[in-house]
Nucleic acid binder design. Sequence first.
DNA 1: GCAGAGGATGTTATCGATGCCAATGGGTCG
DNA 2: CGACCCATTGGCATCGATAACATCCTCTGC
Lengths: 362, 362
Amino acid sequence: MSSETPAADRTPGSGRTADDGAARQPGMADVARLAGVSAQTVSRTLAGHPNVQHATRAKVLAAVEELGYRKNNAARVLSSGRSRTIGVVTLRTTFYSRANLLFGIEAAAREAGYAVSTAATASLDTAAIEGALSRLAEQDVEGVVLSVPLVHVSPRIERLTRSVPTVTVDGSRTPATEVVAVDQTLAARLATRHLIELGHETVWHVSGPPEWLDAASRCAGWRDTLEEAGLSVPPVLEGDWTPASGYRNGLVLAKIPDVTAVFVASDEMAFGVIRALHEAGRRVPRDISVVGVDDIALAEYCSPSLTTVAQPFAEMGALAVAHLLRHIADPGAAPEPASVEPVLVVRASTAAVGGGPEARRS
Amino acid sequence: MSSETPAADRTPGSGRTADDGAARQPGMADVARLAGVSAQTVSRTLAGHPNVQHATRAKVLAAVEELGYRKNNAARVLSSGRSRTIGVVTLRTTFYSRANLLFGIEAAAREAGYAVSTAATASLDTAAIEGALSRLAEQDVEGVVLSVPLVHVSPRIERLTRSVPTVTVDGSRTPATEVVAVDQTLAARLATRHLIELGHETVWHVSGPPEWLDAASRCAGWRDTLEEAGLSVPPVLEGDWTPASGYRNGLVLAKIPDVTAVFVASDEMAFGVIRALHEAGRRVPRDISVVGVDDIALAEYCSPSLTTVAQPFAEMGALAVAHLLRHIADPGAAPEPASVEPVLVVRASTAAVGGGPEARRS
DNA sequence: GCAGAGGATGTTATCGATGCCAATGGGTCG
DNA sequence: CGACCCATTGGCATCGATAACATCCTCTGC
């Protein structure tokens, strides 16, 4: 970085050579010259400013085309103070839901003329998230979507979110942050109620890691629904979102004769659960009904196809971006949490209790 | 965009107000003043330049900390001509493989001190890709990873890749582009050979859309392997990567009595195929063996667990980024294709022909 | 037919950090 | 003991585009 000045024929900036072969990228000034107007007019034309004559605009555009001119974003940002970029902090995992959300956000951002810069973190650990947030902040993003289910908000994160408009997706809110979330409590209620209505005496639950806010909400929704129905609440089996953890918990469930219905906090874990149940000789849904959450593409194609609660990811992304942009435009506006509703998708992994002729009872 | 000048009390740049409440972001000059050094020294300190005395460095860092100073990226980019950002063009689909690759790239880029800007495209259609590429180019990215399996390269894409260093992942190469790819032909060979070795008379194939280069390569690898083994090559069944398309093709396969082995071009489609076979009363792997590609997390947890060909996504991402950075550093270097090797993972969806006592023959 | 309004353009200052070069000062080598 | 070198640090110009302000010009309306 310091020892790179072989010859001394370089112009200060860009590291481009004075005037040897490689044609330098044309600048606005070049376009202006070619079009016979001022740089300012070029700028106005390209910004879609109204007060430019058709003829002039045409000349400018022609020049742009001819030179293959391309705006220099850095200069634009520096000068205008607006980067038209938002950052997204996301998890490096491939858990379906988060990855999908990213695309929802990207689409909505583009729609609004914003670019998206991604910072993935491998863990939920505070330092990692701080790092990601801070990398983004240094990139002049105008705002950040924290697509990370953080429950604990460190002071440093709090400080960062205070200097950069932030929207949290499915996470805790900081004083300066808006939250957009799928109503996970409702998701759990839908699933649990569905099972209760099928006549199950109670519903077991395989949860996500408790540090994840959505996992916690689903767990709460499940518990509340059972209690409201006056049913007993079995102990929670804890998973980590992976199919493997579902499998482990499924083996446990298979050993408990009482179990007739399970609400699993994600489809991927549900696959694991079902697998384990099958191996243990319990039929789904005849012996045990299973409901997942997410509605991943494969949910419909496993056997049995999975009853699950679908989450509107694209909508979420759009909502998050909309909130963020509003917040950027008017930093004064009071944060206003928003949530979107999940939808129960009934397939073949759930059935009335005792599916067969003989009713299974505790 | 044009009608936004309600009051006229704004300083030219940053849209920050002259001197009302809101403290403006501190600049390098502020830090320099507080630390009692020149702005230049601050710059050097922050850039990790070697020739700065410890005492000075400490003073500067203290001042930075106190003011909560944050480098202005736009200015740095404008001045240095280096954005330290690479762009990734990816597909908006949630097909496991691509999403995963994105994270691999992000991780490798971060490792190298680069930020990542994402542009997702909804389709493979040339215009969409051009758009994504061009959005990225306008963001001053130093290079682009085209994580899109394009087969056809339009002149405009070609022009763009000429002005921005580009690495294509699993795609066609343009004259100015490097290609990094998983050896999909090998993936197909591994899968096909595995099935042949199990004694199957031939292997059927459910492919991805032929416009996808990786789909085409897998198909070619499969065909070649069969031919080399002197086996007959059945017609190709074409899918579109979705589980649904796998299901449709599975229904077809189930009607053909000859079929004992199927190589499916993706795990997600394989799930669909297996589902259809089950519904049609064909057992996997007893009646029909199935191999997928990707090794998604769920592959191990469906029933039967899926034999598949794993792709080293993280490695791919790292390789792509490494190539890209090399290409950025030395634009003259000749493009040099690279590929990484997939690995066969044998699970329970494949078995020796006629799994049971009675051997099945054509 | 002339003044004023407003549209279309040009001019200039500026955003914030960096690269080059000069200047300073302590030490080394002959 | 003097010339020279290297380590540190400051000064200045500069990257490319935009906001604000100044101009110039061409229409209206009276």
